[in-house]
């Protein structure tokens, strides 16, 4: 392994890091909003809402992200139903759409199980004290649920960051694509891929650290 080639590649690949980061950020924001809505639908007393949210989760957690991505990029322009007559997405947009749907499907499950994991006695005690549901959800249940949600939420976010590498396959110029361009010119596969791995490892390790810090911050005082 020629370490010089590794170091030399790092700044070149790093140019794709902003794309990797903005893909992650967009999908995390849009996906989390979607996940919140889906989780509330899933916990609602209105049956069609529950069915929709459950079906959404089953569908999008049951097929590979790559199929979703290819559908968004290759198939949406050809999709003619009713008022929709083909949606042409830029590669970056297609990737954000697919990654957001993926994030929504997985994080909805995290939010839902965080809420139902809170001891039902907490709701009962709040009811017995005469609190309104909106109030005790906000003051009692959610703060406790968030503590449970943080580890799986962060680990899904870390997976999302890694999944952005697939955007290469619809030609989004993020880190993995830049690496492939590099090694298809000079055939220094080993060093270039090692540099890419190092960059991902550094980025995901930041997530692991954030996770550990937030877990410590939110831990119950005992």
């Amino acid at each position: 392994m020629d370490l010089d080639l590794v170091w030399e590649a790092i700044p070149l690949i790093w140019k794709g890091a902003s794309t990797t980061a903005s893909l992650t950020a967009w999908a995390l924001v849009l996906g989390t909003i979607g996940a919140l809505i889906l989780a509330l639908m899933r916990l609602s007393s209105i049956k069609p809402f529950r069915w929709f949210a459950a079906g959404f989760g089953w569908l999008f957690r049951g097929i590979p992200l790559l199929i979703l991505l290819f559908f968004a990029f290759f198939a949406l322009p050809d999709l003619n139903i009713g008022i929709v007559d083909g949606i042409l997405l830029e590669p970056f947009q297609a990737a954000v759409v697919a990654l957001s749907i993926w994030t929504a499907a997985y994080q909805a499950e995290v939010i839902r199980s965080g809420i139902i994991a809170v001891d039902p006695g907490q709701a009962e005690a709040s009811e017995a004290l005469g609190m309104a549901k909106a109030r005790y959800m906000r003051r009692i249940i959610i703060p406790q649920g968030v503590r449970i949600m943080i580890p799986p939420y962060t680990s899904n976010a870390m997976t999302l960051l890694k999944q952005t590498s697939l955007a290469t396959l619809v030609t989004v110029p993020e880190m993995t694509l830049l690496t492939q361009r590099l090694f298809s010119n000079d055939f220094q596969f080993r060093e270039r891929i090692a540099a890419l791995a190092l960059l991902y490892l550094a980025m995901t390790t930041v997530f692991v650290v954030i996770q550990q810090v937030t877990e410590r911050t939110f831990r119950l005082k005992v």
Partner: peptide, 10 residues
Amino acid sequence: GIPVFVTLLF
């Protein structure tokens, strides 16, 4: 810490 895609490239 690294994407499965990168492992596959390796």
